[in-house]
Design a protein around this nucleic acid. Structure first.
Length: 679
DNA sequence: CAGAGCCGCCTTTTT
DNA sequence: GGCGGCTCTG
């Protein structure tokens, strides 16, 4: 049992073995927060608490995965109390994924159809657009918020639990006098989702809270869990706090970990106040501070300290390194983005020659598309990489088609899925699709089977040539008696494949994707689960470009700074440290926006253990990923103040040498090929 | 009414 | 360079 806390320092050990009910661990970057939290979990389990009665929550998927992984490792080594009891696994994941599991288990009690559909952000915007149209929003001649803004306003209102008017003042002040029409659309949106059995990301939390607050269901849920742990508590929002409060109504045991100086999810309603003022919700909570940084060498921490010193408020103590020595970070000025990419690749390979594997290096970017050029170059140089964050596989049209089909198989009320799939048919556009859906009566009462029984009425609305195809794919929706979920999935895939093949180009690759996705149906309880899992935990298809990392033993990590939070590498390369990129000019409309960018910058520079390289191109392509020659000049990031820059060795990338080398190489090749004609 | 073709806008971060 | 929204045509 003591092996668990053997390698911890005094404060970490105090946290892991804390005897009280409620604990808050406050700690700066690199001080071993997650180590302390996972050690605490292992300690609780070793002390006799069944692992499956510990719930561990985090906001991001990556942080949740990391936490689960470390728990698994610790628990595998820890002693088992009772030889007869098989060790369970802790209940862990993101808030949203645990909420989803709870909703599936108690769907009926919560007034949801068993096969409810999980909407992604795009679907949610489409539903809200639907009700927006029906309200004749654009008709009154006034500028009215579009679906994106409406969803943003709705989501912030839900997540911050504040009045709609306050949120509108903040997010879209130009329509502050239209609060009532917006409210009415929000009400219609909520009502529509309920009628059709649709659940969006925010609903997961709303229903979970309702379940935990319910007089019958709440105690049931509470009785399943002894201890709740929350990582990255500075990223929780008001709604998540209420979920926690509801879950802990009867049993107080709770451990949270956080760092207010790393709060970077304000844009979705999170606030570090929840961490700092936690006493107002859980008055009994004790606090332990972790202050010793084990991650980084002092020259790297000097950068972080200089960055945070410029902040007007809110940072904790200066970071002091436990490990001595270390090299000064490098600030690399490159002529343009191409030179930056070259410099990064050269540096990565140089480190690799020194014995630092690709896996121990990461390239961090503010926005996912900042690594586009780099990814091309990495592929060209055959350097394998995996990218986290950014555009998702799931947003590819054919992937959404299959997800919609799986949703529809369990929930024939899913108007959105019908609308999308019907339009794959030849000669069917929005109008005919809508008529057919009207004939189905998706909003009428009745069982799923009864809705499908109205299909003969709906098919009348479609043009004659498409009816056979349409019949075939609706037949595939009906479950055959005794058929497994996997077999049903295959049948749906077969019905969709020809439609996908005619509706899009590069059909082969797309149909291959369908196969891979269908495979997931074989060990699922129901098809809507497969769809929901893909929505909550979307795979990313990058990495294909540079070879398959599961075969290559070593690969580079590319990540957005947001997705990199909580992780560490020996070497970190931070790209595009130019104003407008980082801080993103999108964030500069408010002071809080700028401060959040500063914390994000702080997160980025506190990721490396040993080496930090910050790159700054002097010119940018005017169009992102543009291959033309239009450039704009750029300023260094405002976070690279004189004090910060003083912590770096500033170097210029040697683009010209590389160019010269390449042209000599090309000249040599031409000569060889010309000669080859005559041998 | 569907679909081709054209214009202009876009691009933060995550569940 | 991609996509959403618009117009024009059959």
């Amino acid at each position: 049992m003591f092996a668990i806390v053997d390698r911890l320092n005094e404060e970490q050990r105090a946290a892991a073995t804390f005897e009280g009910d409620q604990l808050r661990i406050l700690a700066g970057a690199g001080t071993g927060k997650t180590t302390a939290l996972t050690a605490r979990i292992a300690w609780l389990v070793a002390s006799g608490m069944p692992a499956e009665r510990v719930m561990a929550l985090s906001f991001t998927r990556r942080a949740a995965r990391e936490m689960m992984h470390r728990c698994d490792t610790l628990l595998a080594d820890a002693p088992v109390r009772s030889a007869t009891r098989r060790r369970g696994r802790i209940v862990g994941g993101t808030f949203h994924s645990i909420a989803h599991r709870t909703l599936r288990r108690h769907a009926v009690a919560l007034g949801l159809p068993e096969g409810f559909s999980m909407l992604d952000a795009g679907d949610a915007a489409d539903v809200i657009d639907l009700v927006r149209d029906e309200h004749g929003a654009a008709a009154n001649g006034r500028r009215f918020p579009k679906k994106g803004t409406l969803l943003d306003v709705y989501s912030r209102t839900v997540n911050t639990q504040r009045p709609l008017s306050t949120v509108i003042d903040e997010v879209a002040p130009w329509c502050a006098d239209q609060v009532e029409p917006v409210a009415s659309i929000c009400r219609a949106y909520v009502h529509r989702k309920r009628t059709l059995g649709l659940v969006d990301f925010d609903d997961l939390l709303l229903y979970w809270r309702a379940a935990a607050m319910d007089d019958r269901l709440g105690p049931l849920l509470a009785a399943e869990i002894d201890h709740v742990c929350v990582d990255e508590y500075q990223d929780v929002n008001a709604l998540q706090v209420e979920v926690l409060r509801a879950l802990r109504r009867t049993d107080p045991r709770l451990t949270v970990v956080g760092d207010d100086s790393q709060a970077v999810y304000g844009f979705r309603g999170a606030s570090p106040r929840h961490l700092l003022d936690i006493g107002s919700v859980f008055p009994e909570i004790s606090t332990i501070l972790l202050e010793r940084n084990y991650r980084s060498v002092q020259p790297v921490l000097d950068v972080a300290n200089a960055v945070s010193e410029a902040a007007p408020e809110g940072f904790m103590a200066r970071l002091r390194a436990e490990s001595p020595g270390g090299e000064r970070p490098r600030l690399v000025r490159a002529a343009d983005e191409d030179a930056q990419v070259d410099a990064v690749c050269e540096q990565i390979l140089a480190h690799r020659e020194e014995g630092i594997a690709l896996r121990e290096q990461a390239v961090l970017v503010r926005a996912a598309h900042h690594s586009d050029l780099l990814e091309l170059e990495l592929s060209r140089r055959r350097i394998p990489y995996v990218k986290y964050g950014g555009l998702r596989f799931i947003e590819a049209a054919h992937v959404k088609d299959l997800i919609c089909l799986f949703r529809l198989a369990d929930n024939p009320r899913d108007e959105l899925a019908w609308f999308r799939l019907l339009q794959l048919l030849e000669g069917v556009g929005p109008v005919r699709a809508r008529r057919a859906i009207g004939a189905l009566g998706v909003d009428q009462p009745g069982t799923p089977a009864e809705i499908l029984m109205r299909w003969p009425l709906a098919v009348e609305e479609l043009p004659a040539p498409s009816r056979r195809t349409a019949d075939a794919f609706v037949n595939a929706l009906r479950p055959a008696t005794g058929e497994s979920v996997g077999a049903h999935g295959e049948r749906l895939r077969d019905a969709l494949a020809p439609l996908v093949a005619t509706a899009y180009d590069n059909a082969d690759a797309r149909v291959a994707d369908l196969d891979a996705l269908t495979a997931a149906a074989h060990n699922a309880a129901r098809l809507s689960d497969v769809a929901a899992d893909l929505t909550l935990e979307p795979p990313n298809s990058t990495g294909d470009l540079a070879g398959n990392p599961s075969i290559d033993e070593d690969w580079l990590v590319i990540s957005t700074v947001h997705s990199a939070k909580g992780l560490e590498w020996d070497v970190v390369h931070l790209l595009n440290a130019a104003d407008g990129n980082f801080p993103s000019d999108m964030a500069l409309t408010s002071r809080e926006g700028l401060e959040e960018e500063r914390r994000l910058f702080d997160v980025a520079v506190t990721r490396p253990r040993r080496r930090l390289h910050v790159y700054f191109p002097l010119r940018f392509h005017y169009r992102p990923r543009g291959r033309d020659d239009d450039h704009t000049m750029s300023q260094p990031s405002r976070f690279l103040s004189a004090d910060v820059t003083a912590c770096f060795d500033t170097v210029r990338s040697s683009r010209h040498d590389t160019l010269a080398g390449e042209s000599i190489d090309a000249g040599f090749r031409v000569a060889t090929e010309l000669d080859a004609l005559w041998t």
